[in-house]
Amino acid sequence: MKKESLWGEALKKIVKDKISLFSLIVVLVYTIIAILVSLGVIVGDWHQTVGPNYAPPSSDFIFGTDFLGRDVFKKVIYGVQVAMSVGFISSMISIPIGVVLGATAGYFGGVVDEIIVWFYTTFSSIPTIMLLISISFILEKGITSVYIALGLTTWVHLCRLVRGEVIKHKNRDYVQAVTAIGGGHARKLFRHIIPNVFHVVIINASLQFQVAIKSEVILSYLGLGVQEQPSWGKMINDAKQELTSGYWWQLAFATLAMFLIVLAFNILGDALRDALDPKLKGKES
């Protein structure tokens, strides 16, 4: 019962606050766009030449065209899918690793804990940017490497958080009650403790999305990112040559699209943290 009221209350708090509600709507709209692009419903024809090269924004092309006369608006929309998928898939990689390792370490303690702590200390000792570069450099260039590289670099923080939470929870009354009715380790951990600490995962995911989206831009600039598709990173990167000739629109609209979603995830992350875990308020990140 408590779990439902916690989430219900959190949602109420977020919807009540105008800025948080706006952020939530931005995230939902971006998600829908990303799904539609993935299904091929919209902007499947982004690569077609539709007008002259470098046409400035006008009523025909609201975001202008690029050097091949392609519609910048369509590229920006396609970029939504790339950005959201980078955030989503890298989270899908890092969440299972982080939660399972963190929960195991926190719950069992002792040698198991020491080994897992050693393991994540090791990973966190390699500066993220170097690990990102190394992984995406070694794997074949492309978006799959970006997913894997980001997934493998972002689980550490989550693992540490989950471990801390599980340690706090494992001796609470409700867990002892499960022991009393004969529940084993697996039942205690997966049916009772993890659902109770899962808010940490959600808060972390919303922060991870924006880290992932920003990293994609950097990796694309380094030539280690997305290859065949348009992405905001590639569009911003193109602007390096375009700005001096006054072609500002690719940079402006890719930046704007990215700004909105990163801002939304930032605000939503803070709002979720305040709503779900008042004790953590402001302690992280």
Binding site: K214, I218, I236, N237, L251, N266
Partner: peptide, 22 residues
Amino acid sequence: CIALMSISSLVYILFFQWFFAF
């Protein structure tokens, strides 16, 4: 602060270099 953090570092570099240097 949140707004500043929501813009890619690449954009700052591109814009500042273009505006102040070029």
